[in-house]
Nucleic acid binder design. Structure first.
Lengths: 102, 102
DNA sequence: TCCTTTCGCAACCAGTCAGTTGCACTCAGC
DNA sequence: GCTGAGTGCAACTGACTGGTTGCGAAAGGA
């Protein structure tokens, strides 16, 4: 259960988004594999994966010598519901405003 | 029509989120008013408002000598639908995976 | 055992950005 | 015209962080 704002911040970086979307669309991969497909070094990828992992957007598992990372979409739902909450606050405000004219 | 990733990045900063949520929950305010309620200077607020405005999360209007800012929630919907798209990509991948076993 | 691959850790660099300070401008009220 | 409130612009600073390089450790294969 990661807080939505941390997930928001994690998705704010373009490279981190690229890593996540790559894992999400083409399936699990290791940091080295990702480094071949993206224009940054393995170390940069590893840092981003660690960041993504800390907010629950990525799962790590060992396969022999390799460490394979997999995307997890559950935190996205929490962000979505947070956005919905903010939106409904706005609706409430409209409602109160309407009420004040009756 | 602001792109969802810019909105994402705009909402990533805690202070900027605080400004937006303040405007969203308590209604329009000027930069000076916001500076009284938040622990940063008016200039910092003004920069954040400019940033929020550039992604469509805030509307500005003049009231006499004052400049009043108001929250706009439409871009939040775009972010939500983007999140949904990412989620559905994941569903597609599951579907393909399922198909490969038949 | 030796070599290679993969990974993790630490140090370092450079760019970005949040925040402050200072100053100039505008406009309403006296 | 003067004063004060509200705003905008520019320069500066400090901290954070994305990215790289270098090195050492662990693990599989010949």
């Amino acid at each position: 259960m990661s807080d939505p704002q941390a997930v928001l911040a994690a998705l704010a970086d373009p490279t981190r988004r690229a890593v996540f979307e790559r894992l999400n669309s083409k399936g699990p991969a290791s940091a080295s594999e990702l480094a071949l497909e993206l224009p940054v070094t393995r170390q940069a990828i590893a840092k981003h994966l660690s960041h993504l992992g800390s907010v629950g957007l990525v799962d790590r598992s060992h396969q022999g010598r390799q460490v394979v990372f997999e995307a997890r979409v559950a935190p996205l739902g929490e962000v979505a519901s947070w956005l919905e909450t903010v939106g409904s606050e706005w609706d409430d405000r409209l409602e109160r405003l309407r009420g004040s004219f009756e």
